[in-house]
Design a protein around this nucleic acid. Structure first.
Lengths: 190, 190
DNA sequence: TTTGTGTTTAACAATTTTGTTAACAAAAGT
DNA sequence: ACTTTTGTTAACAAAATTGTTAAACACAAA
């Protein structure tokens, strides 16, 4: 792998997987096994590396939504696939969203970039239709989306804390998370 | 308010409320309107300030659980109160848990402190009883707890990101969050 | 008034982190 | 072969952040 890509991937691993949001350029370079100057060579500055990683995280997040949510397959099946795909990604990159939040909060993002996800908008419509049909309990589709993402993401994000508070072993916690896909599907469809 | 307390409160405001996890001692001092040296005077070092804030956050988290979860009142009523209390705290300190996670991930916490929450353990038992009684759908009580906290916390934590992805105004988002207390109760009790 | 004690501050020192440069190596193009 | 471009490194410079010190301050007690 070329080093520019290696640096980015390593940064993502530290941020999104290890949850190490305070990583310095030196730490990133060390983790990648490259000279720190290479970071400046490829990205100019620490800040630009962060921006790049940020942008790509939003992109991949949106493209993941796109990939599944536009499919013309029955709703229940779509949800099944979506939960599967999204939870796999969550286990790979549990802290991706946390990183995004932290970045948004730290910079005073005056960014005008349109971040709106058309796929989500489309998904919301589909949910509304299902509610009409009676497949789903009626309500604001946004709450359905809230519920869905919350049930998938939160226990994963909170792993280190809940492990302590509940005094659960790493292995047991993993098992619990693995069980959730099925449970969420059941819960969502009442 | 004495300045030691002021510094702590300000740090908490930056971390837990503003989500500004990268705050430097200077920024904390500025926000508190005190001289930066005072932070060293009262807390010795940046790291000790962080440790103090961390410890108190865990303490207050656990004491909040304690306060409600031990009450000897009917389960449904207890849950009603608990959601109310917890969500109020969430709106005050949306990023408290995020801060804890970030700290746990960044230090290689070899901390031996027992963090286990007895209140949560007690709550888990109560949930199990309710499941026996048939008030709640049977299953692992831990998943019930996961669901409960997820539904409360996640939409709050993700506010800045979801506002963008869903293209929702701050006001509208607030309204949505406010609606959730009732929705969660309904969802939890099927 | 003076003395003592805790608080606050500015100036300084030390450390950490980031950014730059110039030299060197490797690869690609001619 | 040699020239140019691209990649890589170490050494240095600059900036940002943290920690220390000593003096000034406030104010109550002796």
């Amino acid at each position: 792998m070329n080093k520019e890509e290696l640096i980015k991937q390593t940064a993502k691993d530290l941020f999104f997987n290890k949850g190490y949001l305070h990583a310095t350029t030196q730490e990133i370079a060390d983790a990648a096994g490259v000279n720190r100057s290479l970071i400046n060579y490829y990205f100019r500055s620490r800040d630009l590396l962060f921006q790049t990683v940020y942008r790509e995280a939003v992109e991949s997040l949106k493209s993941q939504l796109d990939k599944v949510l536009y499919d013309k397959i029955p709703f229940k099946e779509k949800l099944n696939i979506f939960i599967d795909v999204y939870m796999k990604e969550l286990l790979k990159y549990p802290y991706r969203e946390s990183f995004l939040i932290t970045e948004i909060c730290s910079k005073n993002f005056a960014l005008k970039e349109k971040k709106k996800s058309a796929a989500l908008a489309h998904f919301l419509k589909e949910i509304a239709e299902e509610m009409e049909k009676g497949t789903l309990k009626k309500g604001d589709p946004i709450h359905f989306v809230f519920d869905l993402f919350a049930l998938m993401s939160f226990p994963v994000i909170m792993t280190p804390l809940y492990q302590k508070l509940l005094d659960i072993s790493k292995e047991k916690y993993k098992t619990l998370i693995a069980e959730r896909k099925q449970l969420i599907l059941e819960k969502i469809f009442n």
